[in-house]
Design a binder for these strands. Sequence first.
DNA 1: GTTAGCACTCTCATTAACCGAGTGCTAAAT
DNA 2: ATTTAGCACTCGGTTAATGAGAGTGCTAAC
Lengths: 346, 346
Amino acid sequence: MLTDRQLLILQVIIDDFIRSAQPVGSRTLSKKDKIAFSSATIRNEMADLEELGYIEKTHISSGRVPSQKGYRYYVDHLLPPVRLTKEDLAKIQSIFNEQIYELEKIVQKSAQILSDLTNYTTVVLGPSVKDHKLKTIQIVPLNKETAVAIIVTDTGHVEKHVITIPPTIHPSDLEKMVNILNERLIGVPLIDLNEKIYTEVADVLRAHIQSYDSILKTISASLDLDLNAPAQMFFGGKMNMLRQPEFSDIEKVRSLMNIIEQEKEFYRLLRKHQQQGIQVKIGKENEVKGMEDCSLITATYSVGDEKLGTIAVLGPTRMEYSRVISILNRVASDLSNVLTQWYQKY
Amino acid sequence: MLTDRQLLILQVIIDDFIRSAQPVGSRTLSKKDKIAFSSATIRNEMADLEELGYIEKTHISSGRVPSQKGYRYYVDHLLPPVRLTKEDLAKIQSIFNEQIYELEKIVQKSAQILSDLTNYTTVVLGPSVKDHKLKTIQIVPLNKETAVAIIVTDTGHVEKHVITIPPTIHPSDLEKMVNILNERLIGVPLIDLNEKIYTEVADVLRAHIQSYDSILKTISASLDLDLNAPAQMFFGGKMNMLRQPEFSDIEKVRSLMNIIEQEKEFYRLLRKHQQQGIQVKIGKENEVKGMEDCSLITATYSVGDEKLGTIAVLGPTRMEYSRVISILNRVASDLSNVLTQWYQKY
DNA sequence: GTTAGCACTCTCATTAACCGAGTGCTAAAT
DNA sequence: ATTTAGCACTCGGTTAATGAGAGTGCTAAC
C-alpha cells in the first residue's frame, strides 16, 4: 500500500538515521543521489509516512525519526544488501583458526569477535549439557568426609561437584558404586540420568552394596544439581553500549546494565528465541522494561539438525540491522559447520 | 605538626565530603556539633590546611575538598571507628552459611556480598592453583584423536584439558602412562609437575613405553598450559560505580570500565598488593591512568600462614574508608578462618 | 503531480543578569 | 594573642533574552 517512492524515502531516512543518529530533514534527503525530487515533495510524502506511523517527529518542526513500526517494515522488507568485507570474513574465520577442542572456548571467542565486529553487545547461549551423553563418572576422594565427583560427557565437557561422603559408606562400596554406574550409565544423556538410576541401577546397587540408602543420596548429590542450572551465557563487549549516543544518559545505561547483569531476566528473554534462523526483536517487542530503545537480533547454531544454542546481538534500535544480520548469519553457520564436522567424529 | 584543631577540622571536612560529595564550606562546618568555634576561625585554619596541601578548592571561592594528601593522612591517622551493624555481620556470616565445599563458589559469593555491603565494586583474586598438590590425573579418551585430561588437586579443584592423541600412541600405552604419572606425581604441587616429569618420570616412561617421544608431548599438552594463566578474578558489583556522582560523566565511566574489563591490567595492579593486612591506595597512588579518582582497598586471605589470594574494593577516592576497611577486615579474616579450618582436614 | 516560496515553529548556542555560597582580610572584642 | 564579626569580592549555576539555523506545512504557480 506504500508507493515505491514512499518506500524509497522510508529506506533512505532509516539508513541515514542509523548512520547519523540525527533526525532526518527533507533538505538532507533531497541532496541524496538516490532521490531526484524536491524537498517539498519529500515533505508531503513524509507527512503521509508519519500519518501511517512509520516515522515520527521529535518535536513539531524537527526532522523525522523512524518509529518502531518503521524499523519493523525496514527489517522485513527494505534491508539493503551487505557484503562482508575481507577483513570481516577474516576475523570471523579467525574464531576457528586455532585448533580448539573445547566448546566453551570456541563459543566464548565467538562472542568476543562478534562484539568487536559489530561494536554492540553480544551474548552467546552455550549448549545445555542436558543432552550430552555420559562418557564416564569418577569419584575422587579428597579426605574422609569429602570427595569430588567428576562427570565427563562425550563432548569433552567436564562437570565437577564436591560432595560429602557419609561416614557409613565404606570406601570399597564407593568404588563398587562407581563401577556399577559406569557399567550401566555410559551413553545415557545427562538429563535421563536420574531416571535411569532408579530403573536400571537401583536394583543392582541394592544387591551388591550394604549402605544402600546413603549411597543413593551420594549419587543424587553428584548428579542432581547441575541439570536445572541454566546454560552458560558468554558475553562480549558489555561496555560497547556506552559508545552509542543514545546511551549518553547515565540513567539509561544503568537500567540497561541492570538487565544484563542480573542474568536471569536476560536468560529468559533469550530462551524465547529458539526458532531456526535470524530473529529480530525491536524496542518494545522485547517486552522488557528498560529495553525500549534496544533491539535484539538472534540466530541459533546447531549440530546437524539439533539446535545447540543461541547467538544474540544487542544494540540500540538504531542498529545496523543489515550488517549485523549478515555477520550473525555467517558466524552462526560457520559455527554450526565446524561443530557438526567436529561432532561427527564421535 | 598539625594542631588538634586542624586535625579535627580536616577530619570533619573529609567525613562530610565523603557523605555529601559536595565541597565543604566554613559555615557548614561551624554548624557541626563537634565544632565550637566560628566560621571565621575555621576559614583561617582552612587556609593553613590548604597551604599544607591537605585540602583544595575547586575554584577560587568554593568550599574545600580533600586532596590526595588529605585522604592519605585521614586514612593513616583519622579514621573514625566503625562498628558493623548486626545486619552487616549477618550478611557476612551468610557467605559461609551454606555448606560450601568449593573454593571458587565461596570466593565468588564473597565478592558478591562484599559489593552489596559496600555499594562499590569488588574483586577477589582466587587462589592460584600452582601450589595445590596433585591428587590424581585421568585421561578420558573421547574418540580416536582426542581425549580430555583431568587434573584433580588436593583442594578439590579440577582442571580439564582437551588434547589430541597422536595416532602413533597405542591405547594401552596411554593407560600405562596414566598409571605411571599417578604413581610418581601424586602430592606434587602443580607448579613442579613439569620439572618432575623430567627428573622422575621420563626414565620410567622410556623403559616401559614404545612411542616415548609422542607420549611426552601428550603429557606436556595436558599439564603445561594452565600454569601461566593468571589466577581467576571474581567481580562483584561492576556497575556500582555508575551510582557514584563522580561518575555521572559517561567518559569517566568508559575509561574506568576499560581498565576493569580488560582484566590483565587490573590483575597486574592487584598482584602488587600481596602484603599482609589492609592496604589502601588512593588516587594516583595506583599509578594507573584512568584511576586518578579511584581508591583501591585490599586485604589478603590465607590458610594458616600461606597467603591464598587478595580481596579488593574499588571505589571513588571519596570512599567510605572506615566502613570498607572494617568490612574487608572482617570478611578476610572470616574467610581465612573458614578455609584454614577446612584445609586442616587434608 | 511537482516545486518554489514563505511564514511559522522549535531547538540550540550565546550572552547578560542575578543569586547564593563561600572566601580573605580588617578591625573590634575577648 | 586569639577569636570573631563584618564586609567587599569572586565565582559557579540558574534564568531569561536573543538570534541563528534547520525544518515544517501550506499555498500558489508551474
